[in-house]
Design a protein around this nucleic acid. Sequence first.
DNA 1: CAAGATCCACGAAGGTTTTCGTTGATTTAT
DNA 2: ATAAATCAACGAAAACCTTCGTGGATCTTG
Lengths: 135, 135
Amino acid sequence: MSAKKTTSAAPTAPRPTDAELSILRVLWDRGAATVREVHEELSARKPQVYTTVLKFLQIMTEKGLVKRDESARTHIYRAAVPPERMQRSMVKDLVQRLFAGSTQALVQQALGSGKVTPEEISEIRRTLDALERGE
Amino acid sequence: MSAKKTTSAAPTAPRPTDAELSILRVLWDRGAATVREVHEELSARKPQVYTTVLKFLQIMTEKGLVKRDESARTHIYRAAVPPERMQRSMVKDLVQRLFAGSTQALVQQALGSGKVTPEEISEIRRTLDALERGE
DNA sequence: CAAGATCCACGAAGGTTTTCGTTGATTTAT
DNA sequence: ATAAATCAACGAAAACCTTCGTGGATCTTG
């Protein structure tokens, strides 16, 4: 009843659901895409109904997760947020919710569970160096 | 309708929702707790209704996220899974969904966005050393 | 131009998550 | 032992997520 969400776009894009994220991945990949293009790319992995994808894009537009160019009949969609920013916010979110705010704890857990090549390890070391050097 | 989940506990605990995760945090923290204790701790941050917390604990019991000792009138709950295991699986999940399977990409993003103290950096270095040494 | 294809909007159905009121049982205090 | 407090169970309502069918508009093609 009280002020919670105005009709305009949210200032902070909400955390995407799984389905929304799969669509964002396509948009990040292509930069921009029509509903049909998204639909086809998603269908390659898992059969999808066209209007389902369309519906998601519409909802995501309302949520501010994507932006829509309606100048032509066939609308063109883009992710409203670059992948890096989304990764950032979702990592932060997970750190808060699951690691009591400790970034280090998450990093340790990630290193312990996932595969990392020697080259990647070197790269992480360089990032650590840069961090210590004060960026 | 078909076989999807039997009545018994799930072999793999499902990804907890936000509300469920906040309850798990309390349980991990305390080891074990009654509904009232969980309720009070959660209420400290955000007003909660007792029966809402109770309901969640009941659902989480069905899902296999928590275990319940019903021997006394006041039931006692424990997390069914240690925090490390949950962290592991949720980090893996995020790596798949948002980082195209690259653990390294997540680590880089985490290091770049969160605050990490010099001591923590050293610790991460030691972990990297151990990794290179083949554990 | 007429038929078919393509596209978006709308809405509804089914599922899950979240919230909470009520009930009945058990315990505690008077 | 009666009243008050505490507790688990149940169910329902609200919100949200996911899926998809239908309809109307626009574009394309023969």
